[in-house]
Computed example of a mutant assay.
Amino acid sequence: MEFDLQAWLLIGLPLAFVLGWLASRLDVRQMRREHVDSPKAYYKGLNLLLNEQQDKAIDAFIEAVQNDPDTTELHFALGNLFRRRGEFERSVRVHQHLLARADLPASERDRAQHALAQDFMKAGLFDRAEAAYRALVGGEHDREARLALLNLYERSRDWRNAAEMARALEVSGAGAFGQRISHHWCEVALEADARQQSAEATEALALAHQAAPQAPRPQLIAGQRALAAGQAGEALTHWEALLQADLASFSLVAMAYAQAGQSCGQVERARATLTSAHEAHPSLDVIKALAVLDGSALAQSPLVLPYLKQQATLAAAQAVLNRPAEQWTQECADAVGKALDKAGRPLQRYRCAACGFEAQRYFWQCPGCLSWDSFPPQRIEDQ
């Protein structure tokens, strides 16, 4: 019996070792096969994607996901591909599947939530996109979520929420949003005036000025509201403050400023302000306003020809062309010719019919798309 036990031990121990070794080798081979098959499908999909074969790339990624359903990166790649192709429903399903997994780490869950929010945004489902982005506020994607919500509120004209979100972004250190917030409250003021809610509009305009004291729009709107209410003198004060804050923006209300000066009997004040504005920042709109104060036509203004010589715009050239024949001089002709030459320059080129490339000289082969005979033999203005 003792001999038999020793014999079994001598035979059994090596056999057990061999069987264990074989089992481990089979397990390693299986693991290697799984890990090799998945990257092969992944790299195949990546190669197809680089070759702009998106349909075949999607099939390859689906195959890779089936081989390794636990790999989140493949799911994200597949979802992004669906979104780029406009297949938002399939993209949503992929990302919702990721969110439904109980073993998903918190960082990957936030990433899937962010991708899902982008799906809803691209699909035009703004209410669902808002809820998805709201779920990301305070997390790893906080700044991206708040910026997306800000754009969403602006797109849907939800100005109060837009102002609140812009303020939160500014507090968090994402940048300066004062000018943007000022525009939000200006929009609230205009909507309130449209509903004849004057007190609400006044409050919103005050918040707009508070958000960006140097912003031109609150002063511009305040002047317009004052003029509409019959308070022309107050309108002049607001627009003079606008002139101090932003010279260029004053030209937007130059004509209204002249009319306000006339209606309240302060023509000389208006003329002095407009003259100062034109000297600091020449503008045809300001010249028109000065002509109104003088009771003359724009063509008669002595400021038009110097402005045309300086700016060479078609609007100024048209004003000079409207002058009576007896006031027409060689100086006028030269200034108008210069303006017409400047305006006509973009049209004196050849344009490729295939890609739209423009050039001053004619090409038989387009330098842009390399097409032959794609340039019509006529310039743009002759077509």
Rank of each mutant, 00 (worst) to 15 (best):
L9V: 12
A16Q: 05
R25C: 07
P39A: 12
A41P: 00
L46F: 09
N47E: 11
Q54V: 15
D55E: 15
A57V: 06
A60D: 03
A64Q: 04
D68M: 11
T71D: 15
F76K: 07
L78G: 03
G79C: 06
R85Q: 13
R90K: 14
V92L: 04
R93T: 05
S107Q: 10
H114W: 11
A115R: 04
L125Y: 07
E130P: 01
E130K: 13
Y133A: 03
Y133S: 04
H141Q: 13
H141N: 12
E144I: 08
A145G: 10
L147I: 04
L147Y: 04
Y153G: 06
E154H: 08
N161C: 11
A163P: 01
A174N: 02
Q179F: 04
R180Q: 14
I181G: 01
T202V: 02
A204G: 10
P213S: 06
P213H: 08
G223I: 02
E240Y: 00
L243P: 02
A260Q: 01
A260L: 00
R271N: 12
H281D: 13
A289S: 12
L303H: 00
Y307A: 04
A316R: 02
A316F: 02
P324V: 12
A325N: 07
E326Q: 10
W328S: 07
Q330T: 13
C332E: 06
A335T: 07
G337Y: 05
K338F: 07
C355Q: 05
G356F: 10
W364Y: 13
I380E: 14
